[in-house]
Amino acid sequence: MSSSGSSPLWEVFVRARRGLAHTHVGSLHAPDAELALRNARDLYTRRQEGVSIWVVPAGAITASSPDEKDAFFDPAADKVYRHPTFYDVPDGVAHL
């Protein structure tokens, strides 16, 4: 049985420390969620990389398409006023 054979693909998210968000670290093959979690433990946290793991069936993820890149992301390019640095902080504001 090859890795790409019968086992479905899972995406793995690891939380490095308490207080941080789970971050996508990679993917793996496993026959079910329980084994996916254990495979993730062995593949992605064996050097103390994490304190919590999520596994998600890759098929359950809806991703933006490269074809939609312009419609999705270009409109943000010229909206500098969406960044806090666009605004001057008045002298009188001590705690911002």
């Binding site: 049985m1 090859s2 890795s3 086992s7 793996l28 093959h29 496993a30 084994l35 254990r38 495979n39 062995d42 593949l43 064996r46």
Partner: peptide
């Protein structure tokens, strides 16, 4: 091992 993932698990 039958799968790459299991290979790592057994080595661990």
């Amino acid at each position: 091992a039958p799968e790459m993932e299991e290979d790592i698990a057994l080595a661990n």
